[in-house]
């Protein structure tokens, strides 16, 4: 896998980052999209790292989860990726109903907490764990727009 594949994933991560900044300003209206875009940005950063370290991408979410948890180097990444993946599944697929305690994503996490928990904590920890050798090349680390 060429280093351009790594850069391609970084470029996609940066597109997600720009979208994330946009919805973060409207987190009150779109908390589910804050969690979802944070998750998809993490996917791109992780894929950039996997193609850099292992020279091949993941085919799907299942394979990515498997590779992260089975490789000791990626366990810190996995610890934060799994809850982010989980939050995005809840955001996208958990149906609103009236029978349980959950009726909307804002019941799961308040809009003033969604940025703190899923961007400032989970996504940032993923980026911090990968923005060092040997997980990303120097040029990829420099090119990545990171969570502040």
């Amino acid at each position: 896998m060429s280093s351009s594949a790594e850069q391609d994933h970084i470029a996609l991560a940066n597109r997600n980052h720009a979208a994330l900044l946009y919805v973060m300003d409207r987190a009150k209206d779109f908390p589910e999209w804050v969690a979802t875009i944070a998750f998809y940005k993490s996917v791109q950063v992780i894929e950039a790292s996997l193609v850099y370290t292992d020279k091949r991408p993941s085919h799907d979410h299942r394979e990515r989860l498997r590779r992260l948890k089975n490789d000791n180097r990626y366990q810190e990444t996995f610890k934060h990726y799994r809850p982010l993946f989980e939050a995005s599944l809840i955001a996208r697929y958990l149906r609103n109903d009236s029978g349980g305690g959950y009726s909307a994503f804002s019941d799961f996490i308040a809009s003033d907490q969604v940025v703190n928990q899923f961007v400032s904590h989970r996504l940032r920890r993923i980026e911090t764990s990968l923005c060092k050798s040997p997980f990303l090349s120097k040029s990829a680390r420099e090119a990545l727009d990171r969570v502040e």
Binding site: R62, L65, R66, R82, E86, L89, I90, Y93, L94, R95, N96, D97, S98, G99, G100, G101, Y102, D107, F108
Partner: peptide, 19 residues
Amino acid sequence: VKLDTLALPSVSSDGLASF
């Protein structure tokens, strides 16, 4: 045995069905 994990908030059985 390959296993993944997922926690859902308190939800009714209808909401659970898609998982």
